[in-house]
Simulated scan of single mutants.
Amino acid sequence: MRAAVSLLRNRFGSARMHAKALPWDQLKINASESIISSGLDEFDIPKGRFIQYMRSGNATKRLGMVSENGSKMIELSSRTCASPDMVQFIQQRYCMSSLLDSIQFMDVDNVSPDLILLPPIHSPGKIIGVSCNYYDSCSERRECVPKEPVFFVKFNTAITGAMDNIRAHQIAKRIDYGCELAVVIGKKCRHVSREAAMSCVFGYMIAQDITARDWNVLLGGQTLLGKSLDTFCPLGPVLVHKCHVPDVDNLWITTIVNGEERQSGNTENMIFKIDYLINRLSQFMTLCPGDIILTGTPAGTGAYRHPSSYLKPGDLVESEIQKLGKLRNKVVNPYA
């Protein structure tokens, strides 16, 4: 599971090492060399980057915190009062500054090769997405910039992990991708103002909003069915606390399919920012700890390429957002 360790690593600076579509093994080497040469010991200290995982041969779910370079970790669920379940941990409302201060007194381990990475959140109460929330995406679709966000939902049975397979279900013929910044709610909120909205956020992670485009247009538009097939929501690899993402409105996003860069965007190009989305949703419903908001995807999705380019068994989808790590999902037939 060495790839699991690589997926936990962060990319630093503005240099985007994947821009030349290098092979996966070479990417790992370059990332490691970049971190080592920095000479900053703090990158080896586990911070507010949370993972859920299991050990090989042990089905017990655990909660841990990893360093920015993915080499060191602390198991919180066995050494603190933290719940091994991420949603329950969020509900415990730990003081993050106190937790980060206390790590100096905890045993720090190397990230083991037998670590089995799980989705950071398994069973959120809600997964709510927003359609066409990037200016370049509207331009690509030749659509007007929306005056209000249009929301959709995905069911939590669609969730899969950062290294898990995406199933190309026989019922879906036009399977598309879309890398998105996922916002995780940290406390219950209703009728929250835009000014207070960001205080309701726990942290951020990467999501791939896999969509069966054919079901989005059949029978008047079956968006729910097209979005919620099993494995159509890869999440991870880590859930990064908001204190480590000070400028969430300026993160680059990429999707690479079979070594070819398909998406290249930045969260600064969101039409409706995170505070507005939380404010808007909370006027209609109670948002709860662990709820996930998918904030939209930049231009470059398969349906709007010329010619269109949908996913098929054997494809490798690599999704990356600055500071949040990387997903690496292979598309397989439904019986694999």
Rank of each mutant, 00 (worst) to 15 (best):
N165I: 05
C288A: 09
K61A: 13
A303Y: 10
D291T: 09
F151D: 11
K61Y: 11
P334H: 04
C233A: 15
S264R: 04
N258A: 07
F89Y: 05
G39D: 00
I45P: 00
P146G: 11
C132E: 15
C144P: 13
S308C: 13
L294G: 14
D25N: 10
P84R: 03
I45R: 08
G300T: 00
I171Y: 09
V238M: 15
I166E: 09
P234V: 11
V5S: 12
V238K: 08
C81H: 07
K20G: 04
P149F: 03
D209H: 02
L27I: 07
I271M: 12
V217I: 12
P119W: 06
S34K: 09
D85A: 02
L294W: 07
S71R: 11
G265Q: 01
L294Q: 13
M106P: 11
G129T: 10
F232L: 04
I128T: 08
N156S: 08
K227Q: 10
A59E: 09
F12P: 13
D209F: 03
S319T: 14
R55P: 04
V317P: 04
R305T: 05
T223Y: 14
L40K: 14
S228I: 13
R213I: 06
Q222W: 13
K154P: 06
I116V: 12
S14D: 12
L76G: 09
L235Q: 05
I90R: 01
K227D: 06
G236H: 03
M198A: 12
Q26I: 08
I321E: 02
C233M: 08
M198H: 09
R328Q: 14
L224G: 11
Q322D: 00
K126C: 02
S193G: 13
R280D: 14
L235A: 06
I185A: 06
P237N: 03
R280P: 08
I29C: 00
L239S: 04
R9S: 15
R2F: 13
G39S: 00
G186M: 03
Q52W: 09
S319W: 07
M285V: 12
M205L: 08
N156K: 15
N165H: 15
I293V: 05
N216D: 10
F272S: 02
E260L: 15
V248T: 11
T80W: 01
H244M: 14
G48E: 14
S32W: 14
Y304C: 07
V317H: 08
K330E: 15
D275C: 07
G220C: 00
E195K: 07
M96N: 02
M54H: 09
A207F: 01
L117Y: 08
S67A: 11
V87N: 01
S309V: 15
R174G: 03
T301F: 10
F232G: 00
I293Y: 02
V217M: 12
E195N: 15
G125D: 08
S102Y: 09
N250V: 01
A299L: 08
A336G: 10
C95V: 10
D107Q: 06
P289K: 03
I256L: 12
V145C: 02
I51E: 11
V150F: 15
